[in-house]
């Protein structure tokens, strides 16, 4: 047997410029710090940041959990664009890599931000749970649902609450009450769900002011940066259509 020989080019030396600030050390001013690291095959920002922390600066703060782009922990600004760090391969980036924490969210330290509190707040505002028609009956078979509807709900359910859409949104950056794409997508997900008893009129108050769907000025940064490729344009169009028809029918 002949082992496959992989010819490696001379590895690049990557220059990471990383935002540093620890709120527990308020006297030390925010700054950018540079680290050099040799690139490896299949290197992601997850691997790179851990190597920097373990070999160069043990105080560096960042968040990862699943490292497979499903838990939404590691949103950050990579060369000016919100992305999931774990699924960003360094080979797609230039030699100079600038990393900053997501804006809008409260800073915990360096690249770590508090998305948990923001999303819990959003979930409470949009009441992100099924408003049931009747209590659960453990003795009866499940309610039927057309598979196409299940798939349509799943489409919106795929949001992983990474916060990239909020960070990339011109409105959310100036209006902290704006629900943003993540919040509006969540509303569309429940509006579609036949198991939810809320009517268009119920949604009207939540959605149709400047903090809701009519606050969006159409830059659609959210759509461009969503790492899961959610159909945010369609979700917005769906919400606007539903709200306009609710209005016209006299809600």
């Amino acid at each position: 047997m002949s082992p496959q020989v992989i010819q490696l080019e001379t590895p690049r030396t990557l220059s990471f410029e990383i935002f540093r600030f620890n709120p527990e050390e308020p006297d030390v001013k925010p700054r950018m710090q540079t680290f050099l690291l040799e690139e490896m095959p299949f290197m992601t920002l997850y691997l790179a940041l851990n190597r920097i922390r373990e070999e160069q600066d043990p105080s560096l703060q960042f968040d990862f959990a699943c490292r497979s782009a499903i838990c939404g922990s590691c949103g950050m600004i990579v060369n000016g664009r919100p992305r999931l760090a774990c699924s960003t391969l360094t080979k797609e980036l230039p030699n100079r890599i600038q990393l900053q924490p997501l804006p809008v969210f409260k800073l915990i330290g360096d690249l770590s931000v508090d998305t948990g509190i923001w999303f819990r707040g959003m979930a409470e505002r949009v009441e992100s749970w099924i408003h049931e028609n009747a209590p659960f009956d453990p003795t009866s078979r499940e309610e039927r649902m057309d598979n196409d509807l299940a798939q349509a709900i799943y489409e919106g359910e795929r949001c992983i609450e990474c916060g990239c859409c909020i960070a990339g949104c011109g409105v959310a950056n100036v209006n902290p009450d704006f629900l943003g794409a993540a919040g509006l997508n969540r509303i569309a997900r429940f509006m579609r769900d036949s198991r939810d008893s809320r009517q268009d009129e119920d949604w009207f108050n939540v959605v149709s002011d400047e903090n809701g769907v009519f606050g969006c000025v159409g830059l659609m940064g959210c759509h461009d940066v969503c790492p899961k490729g959610l159909p945010l344009l369609e979700q917005y169009a769906y919400l606007r259509r539903k709200m306009l028809s609710a209005r016209l029918s006299g809600a």
């Binding site: 099924i130 049931e132 453990p138 499940e142 649902m145 299940a150």
Partner: peptide
């Protein structure tokens, strides 16, 4: 089976029989 149906009640978009 009860737990799965309860999850359906809570909104899990289970893939359905076509």
């Amino acid at each position: 089976p009860i737990a799965v149906r309860e999850l359906a009640h809570w909104g899990v978009p289970w893939t359905r029989v076509r």
